[in-house]
Design a protein around this nucleic acid. Structure first.
Lengths: 338, 338
DNA sequence: CTGAAAGCGCTAACAA
DNA sequence: TTGTTAGCGCTTTCAG
């Protein structure tokens, strides 16, 4: 394996020219610097011949820019985040950026560690759906002029780029639909940590819809599930919840995993959706169309969210100006059988 | 924004010691080098006080190791790869490695570009499910002593670490089950590019099961779908296929997206699974349990695949020895209603 | 116990 | 039109 790594210096030496010359040519700045066409061609040929590979790390150290974006979410394998990741990867790639993807597992300490990791790695910017309660760690980034785009989740107290949907309105619409259909005892299932903005907003939408129709809020009908338990598919709490509150005829869940948990629990209890209990969930998953029954859901404009997130980040990377762009999109209530 | 970046030199200067000293201490090599406890503490305190962040890029340039793993798959948002990604992230993280994740879209040229990108970025190793026909680009990596672990897909002609399942056997079992249930006209749906080892092996399993039962192979009953079309949810070909071959009573699909396409097509044709057509698919997705009807599938031991892939890679990263480890695991046929 | 100095591979002033 | 030089921030001999 003769394959010693080829560097700029190797090419320069072989050709008897300077590193600068080679660097310029290989970076397409040959013409701008009025370098002899012939010389340019020689350099290019030699680079190909030696199978030269520019060392991005060295370039990164020198230029202070790594062409890398950090993507931080709760769980990269959750269909919602997985789809967003793919879209972000796509748009980032167009501009030559790669993604370091990481999952916080809804663990605040872990998220802080990951933020540190990403900045240590000198990623040029971060796109994240944060699980933090206090955005102090993110504020520090911004104070250091670090480009950050939040998506899905925001912080009221923090001036930061953001793209997401109007969660309160979407939840309001879904629950209002239940009410119009005559449901009075509508359960609300959500996750902890419950300080997450999306979850809070969805809860507000639920409460508002009830208020709006003069239905009094029963705190019994609201259940919070622990993220870890949910991840390990411990659906017992959901079952107990349904048994204890057997007046419930409709359920609103704040994410796709909860909806799956409900399907399982309801099935195990021998109940039927929607005959016994109706279900609408936040976040659409492709297969919800084919479940039994097909699940009604609130679909976020995933493509647009990912695209906007990258677009905002890249703009600020290019200009160096950290504006403060907030995009609130509309979610789409998809009514199916459930 | 006083936040100039703090470097080792800054700490050294403030303390009136050398960079070496600081570097040693901060890397936990203080004791090994018999550095004064007090001095060590001073360094650590000062680092904390100044909020020092080690620059990984600089370290990477110096040490030639970036603590980064490249993950290359067809589509990071496909549930199968998304789950694997999460697991790989988990095990890599334990050892301090991060992931650059990228999707080839089953495009050979794009994959080659991504491989180049990853090596330019000096990732320490690559874990990939390759879409290539000729593994030349991967062979080059290995020749350069670049640690590579293939998963899911392998190359017969290439000596390279690999972890995956026995695809032929799994497909054989699934199709044999169809036959035992009395099916004679069993359709086979797969993807292009069809040189991919998993797809070939699954096809072989299908053929072998038929042969084994003395059922003659009808090439009409085998359909290949283009990846791009599938991604764009163009299921018309599947519909036409089913209409043209209305003797089909069972379908075997080689991946989860194809199964979804079949469900859609069969539904649109007003047919019922499994009454009119039975379905078994490769790759299990959580929601297959809840679809209507629930889908029988071949589940790969995802956790084990991801864990092994990381383990093999890290071992070779540590020892510098590129052995050639091949792990073939067993897939699990999950029989549901379809 | 601590420090000086070299150098990883690259880019960018500045010279020539 | 091309070359010299310095230096990004870090680790690591080698000397003291």
């Amino acid at each position: 394996m003769t394959n010693k790594k080829i560097t700029l210096t190797d090419i320069a030496k072989e050709l008897g020219v300077s590193k600068t010359l080679v660097s310029l040519v290989l970076n397409g700045k040959g013409n701008a610097n009025a370098i002899n066409k012939e010389t340019q061609q020689k350099v290019i040929n030699k680079a190909k011949e030696l199978n030269y590979k520019p060392n991005q790390v060295a370039r990164g150290l020198r230029t202070g820019t790594t062409k890398t974006i950090g993507l931080l979410v709760a769980d990269i394998s959750n269909p919602f985040y997985a789809r967003i990741a793919r879209i972000i990867e796509h748009y980032a790639d167009i501009e030559g950026y790669s993604l370091i993807a990481c999952s916080s597992d809804e663990d605040e300490e872990r998220e802080k560690k990951l933020i540190r990791m990403l900045t240590n790695r000198q990623v040029d910017g971060i796109i994240m759906a944060s699980t933090l309660q206090e955005p102090e760690a993110i504020k520090q980034l911004i104070d250091q002029k670090y480009p950050v785009v939040l998506f899905d989740r925001y912080f009221r107290e923090l001036d930061c780029n953001y793209v997401g949907v109007d969660n309160k309105e979407a939840a309001f619409q879904a629950v209002s639909l239940f009410i119009r259909k005559g449901h009075k005892n509508i359960g609300f299932l959500t996750l902890t940590p419950d300080h997450i903005s999306t979850l809070k907003d969805r809860r507000h939408g639920y409460v508002k819809a009830l208020e709006n129709s003069g239905i009094s809020l029963q705190s019994d009908l609201m259940l919070e599930l622990n993220y870890e338990e949910l991840k390990n598919k411990h659906y017992n709490q959901i079952k107990e919840f349904i048994i204890k509150n057997n007046q419930i005829t409709a359920l609103f869940t704040t994410n796709n995993s909860l909806a799956v948990g409900c399907m399982e629990a309801i099935k195990e209890l021998g109940l039927k959706i929607p005959d016994d209990i109706s279900l609408i969930t936040f976040d659409d998953v492709e297969l919800f169309k084919y479940t039994s029954p097909s699940l009604s859901s609130i679909a976020q404009p995933v493509e647009e969210i990912g695209k906007q997130a990258v677009s905002i980040l890249l703009k600020q990377l290019k200009t160096g100006e950290l504006e403060n762009i907030r995009k609130e999109l509309k979610a789409n209530l998809i009514i199916r059988e459930s």
